[in-house]
């Protein structure tokens, strides 16, 4: 039986954790392989299954994986991982696509002019290019529900701010290096703020606390300040 993709390297990280490495680049195709592997392994093996750009962390319960023959739990998990990745299963469910409304510029995106200057573009072109792309949620991290999105138009890439802000408002859509992301709650942050979504990106009262999951596809829909206000009120009312 042939594997649908070249196998990852498997590195034991701790007594109860393995790290699968699929490569060492920030690349949407590579990252999609991570999510496909996560979909196969999540329920089978792990108590935690944490995708990142090119790697996947699996945590397991060493006691329940301990072999009766004394075989180490790590070895048994490694074998189960390899078997699961090699089994010729149906391709995993296609990713969800979520369209997120964003009010670009102005008070909602105070750094958009700096991004435009850095890119040598007009502000309108920055908005157009940022909203034209289809992004992939590479991973969530930094803070609960913070999505790192792959797929930023290369011309919009910009190194992080030299002086990070102590408070970035919740919902801020920002650019940091070659990535874009959304601040799910008020947080300190060093990325350039180009807009804000009125939607709740992280809400503990919701059935699914994080709006986005690893592997999701995301598009941004530009809205104006009036629409922002209306949607914001709707979000508050839903809380």
């Amino acid at each position: 039986m042939t594997s649908p993709w070249p196998g990852p390297t498997i590195e034991p990280l701790a007594e109860d954790a393995l790290l699968l490495r699929f490569g060492d680049a920030m690349d949407a195709v590579l990252n999609a392989r991570v999510h496909a592997a996560a979909a196969r392994l999540r329920t089978l093996i792990a108590t935690e299954c944490v995708p990142a750009y090119a790697s996947l962390l699996l945590r397991f319960d060493p006691l329940s994986w301990q072999g009766a023959d004394g075989q180490a739990a790590l070895e048994r998990v490694r074998e189960a991982v390899l078997a699961a990745l090699q089994s010729a299963e149906e391709s995993p469910v296609p990713p969800r696509e979520i369209v997120i409304p964003v009010c670009y510029g102005g008070e909602h995106g105070p750094d958009i002019e700096a991004v435009a200057r850095h890119a040598g573009l007009e502000v309108a072109q920055v908005i157009e290019r940022h909203a034209a792309a289809r992004y992939q949620v590479a991973m969530l991290g930094f803070a609960p529900g913070f999505p790192y999105l792959l797929g930023l138009d290369e011309t919009l890439a910009m190194p992080r701010r030299a002086d990070p802000r102590l408070r970035v408002p919740a919902g801020s859509v920002a650019i940091g290096g070659r990535q874009t992301g959304i601040y799910p709650q008020e947080l300190p942050g060093g990325w350039h703020l180009i807009g804000r979504t009125p939607w709740a990106v992280f809400d503990l009262r919701a059935r699914a606390p994080a709006l986005l999951r690893p592997g999701d596809h995301v598009r941004f829909q530009p809205i104006d300040a009036v629409q922002y206000r209306q949607l914001s009120q709707a979000t508050d009312a839903a809380r």
């Binding site: 935690e48 944490v50 994080a210």
Partner: peptide, 9 residues
């Protein structure tokens, strides 16, 4: 809290 690391928690 177990099982939420993939959501950044």
């Amino acid at each position: 809290r177990s099982g939420y690391a993939a959501l950044g928690i």
